[in-house]
């Protein structure tokens, strides 16, 4: 168990360059406290996904280190394999196993003794009745739920979500958002998710991280957001107003 307020994730000086330099990261420093929800915001190609993949252990950095729960999992001399990091990740395209049913997908990472708690998750994430379906028989929202449930089932210390709301319609998006926050708090899991939409961040995140061209622009508590005078942040905030109006008009129609 993690101590309260100790960082569950600590990233320092993280640098990664690809052959095509567009998705690289440069000297990123960041700490995430246990139990918090963090949103990583930025335009596409700014290195958000790369950051997640580095933390997950799917990529290796060239410089800098990553600590999870106080343990160095990645540095210039260490690279702990992904499956040993106790990090869960939900992919943008859900990556459900097409040859397994919903139930089998969710049970996949779970040992036999814990199948029951995995099955409880099915209910928690509102997938009852869909257990025997195959992924291609589900809607995008349902697929996302399966992907989240599957990841939660293995009880990771840290949950990473890559653009979890990008393929969903507005209504599904907002319900799912609320649910994720609820479940994260319920299971006391730390969450880091990537989004290009600051509305997602404001709605559920405790902290927001802005990435630009692979560099950390700013990180702050969500509540502090309005006090920031970065031009970039103001631009994002304007974006919210437009979207809020849109959401309201949608609710009005329904």
């Amino acid at each position: 168990m993690t101590k309260n307020n100790a960082p569950i994730l600590e990233v320092s000086g993280l640098t990664k360059s690809f052959d095509q330099t567009e998705r690289a990261l440069h000297g990123v420093d960041y700490q995430l406290k246990a139990g918090k929800v963090c949103a990583v915001v930025g335009e596409s190609g700014c290195g958000k996904t790369t950051l997640l993949r580095l933390i997950a252990g799917l990529e290796v950095p060239e410089q800098g280190s990553i600590q999870i729960d106080g343990e160095v999992v990645s540095s210039t001399s260490i690279s702990k394999p992904a499956h040993k990091r106790k990090v869960g990740m939900v992919f943008q395209d859900y990556a459900l196993f097409p040859h397994l049913t919903v139930e089998e997908n969710i049970r996949f990472g779970v040992s036999k003794s814990e199948i029951e708690s995995a099955d409880k998750l099915i209910k928690l994430i509102k997938l009852s009745g869909k257990e025997k379906k195959y992924p291609h028989e589900l809607s995008s929202g349902q697929k996302q739920r399966v992907a989240i449930a599957r990841t939660l089932a293995v009880k990771p210390d840290l949950l990473l979500l890559d653009e979890p709301f990008s393929n969903l319609d507005l209504i599904t998006k907002s319900t799912l958002r609320k649910e994720i926050r609820k479940i994260a708090k319920l299971l006391s899991i730390s969450v880091m998710f990537v989004t290009h939409d600051i509305y997602d961040a404001i709605d559920i995140a405790d902290e927001v991280v802005f990435l630009q061209n692979g560099e950390l622009l700013l990180s702050c508590d969500t509540s502090d957001l309005l006090n920031q005078d970065e031009e970039k942040v103001r631009m994002y905030l304007e974006q919210i107003q437009t979207q809020a109006r849109h959401l309201l008009s949608l609710k009005g129609n329904g």
Binding site: A56, H83, F91, D93, F108, G109
Partner: peptide
């Protein structure tokens, strides 16, 4: 992706 998500579920390679 599929393999990576299996790793993230704690399965060895």
């Amino acid at each position: 992706n599929l393999a990576e998500s299996a790793y993230m579920l704690g399965k060895s390679r």
